[in-house]
Write a protein that binds this DNA or RNA. Structure first.
Lengths: 101, 101
DNA sequence: TTTGTATTTCGCAAAAATACGAAATACCGT
DNA sequence: ACGGTATTTCGTATTTTTGCGAAATACAAA
């Protein structure tokens, strides 16, 4: 079913990525994951640094996951999060084209 | 008064710019303004293309203005909008650093 | 001074985002 | 089977965003 919208797929996608990054906690999380690609990044690692409840952090992680920017590798009871490289590359490309056109 | 927040100025700013771009209509507007730097860009020009009420468009313009991304040159009854080059350059720099770190 | 034009502001309603604590989940070690 | 641990989901409250039409604004032209 083709997207029934006035806006282009590109515009919708840009807006979706932007929205995912529109909260300082989520910027923090992405920053954390980017700077620690080698480390295991558990929810708890970030929860210790961030001044928000664990359930709230969990929601932010879910939103980033829904936007496709991150993924969680389940290893109960831990969940190791990391950047979704494909989406991240796409986001990079789109932002860079948009910003530098 | 120093910002009393856990997050850095940079993170706050990134989130603010992202939020400004978190709606397809606002992506559309920015795109329009970027592609028409030579033209006069009146609210009405965009209102004719966008499938939203003029008052709604006006609100989106206000948000982009509040985020510092655009500015309006008043020439009643017209208002000519354009990219705020300084902020735009800053946003470019910040996004590119963030995305490519 | 009245009329017209482009745009914004106001007032409101509906939807979405944000946040928390409590409860649920899912596995491990004992 | 029973706790212990890390994390998520649920229920709920508050705030913010989005959207519209009607009214207001501000100037130009007649």
């Amino acid at each position: 079913m083709p997207k029934d919208s006035f806006y282009t797929e590109l515009h919708e996608k840009m807006a979706r990525y932007s929205k995912a990054l529109s909260h300082p906690a989520r910027i923090y999380i992405m920053d954390f994951l980017i700077r620690n690609t080698s480390k295991c990044c558990y929810s708890g690692d970030m929860a210790e640094e961030l001044p928000i409840a664990r359930s709230t952090l969990s929601q932010h992680l879910k939103e980033l996951k829904n936007a496709g920017l991150i993924q969680g590798e389940i290893n109960p009871p831990y969940i190791r999060y990391c950047i979704n490289r494909d989406s991240w590359e796409e986001a990079k490309r789109m932002f860079s084209e948009f910003l530098n056109q």
